[in-house]
Amino acid sequence: MNWKSFLLGVAVGIIGGYAAKEIITCKTNISPEKVLEQVKKQFSKNGPINGSWIHMEAEPYEKQQINYRVYKGGISKNNNGTTEQFEFIADAQTGTLLDVRALSSELVS
């Protein structure tokens, strides 16, 4: 066996392994649809949901001096004749809810 071929094979193996590691550990965003699905699942534990939306582009967000890429969205639900609306902020990489804010409620007739 030729030493040049052996060393070339080792070099290609190392480079390929490093590239595979980078691809596997790459921090990619979860799709906004999947994040909305997870948020709706959490909200539906306390009653049915009337409507929901999510902004499809991740944007920068800082909370307690930690930077995130987030999706912003909203949920509306009916609670005893009153429509409750909530805005949420979810981490784009994990789908974890970072913040939820209740908006004003309105009476449904």
Rank of each mutant, 00 (worst) to 15 (best):
K77E: 02
A102S: 11
T82G: 06
G17T: 09
E33G: 08
H55L: 13
E62M: 04
L7I: 15
Y61I: 07
N50G: 11
I14T: 14
I30S: 00
A58G: 01
G74Q: 04
S31D: 06
Q64A: 13
I54H: 00
K72W: 02
Q93R: 13
G95A: 15
S44E: 15
I54C: 05
I14L: 15
L8G: 10
A11C: 12
G17S: 14
F43M: 01
T82Y: 13
Y61K: 03
T94A: 02
V108P: 01
L107K: 10
D91T: 11
G47F: 05
W3F: 12
Y18C: 12
K45G: 05
W53K: 06
N78H: 09
G17F: 10
E33D: 08
V70L: 04
E57Y: 01
E106A: 11
S109T: 05
E37I: 04
C26K: 07
S31C: 08
T28A: 09
E106S: 08
K34G: 04
G81A: 07
L98K: 04
K4L: 15
G9E: 10
V12E: 09
E22D: 14
N78C: 07
A20K: 05
S44W: 03
K27N: 12
N29Q: 13
W3M: 10
E62Y: 05
I15Y: 10
I14F: 11
Q85M: 14
K72I: 05
E59N: 07
T94N: 01
S105A: 14
V39T: 07
M56W: 04
K40A: 07
N50Q: 12
N78K: 11
Y68P: 00
I24Q: 08
L98G: 03
Q65W: 10
V10H: 01
K21Y: 15
V70M: 00
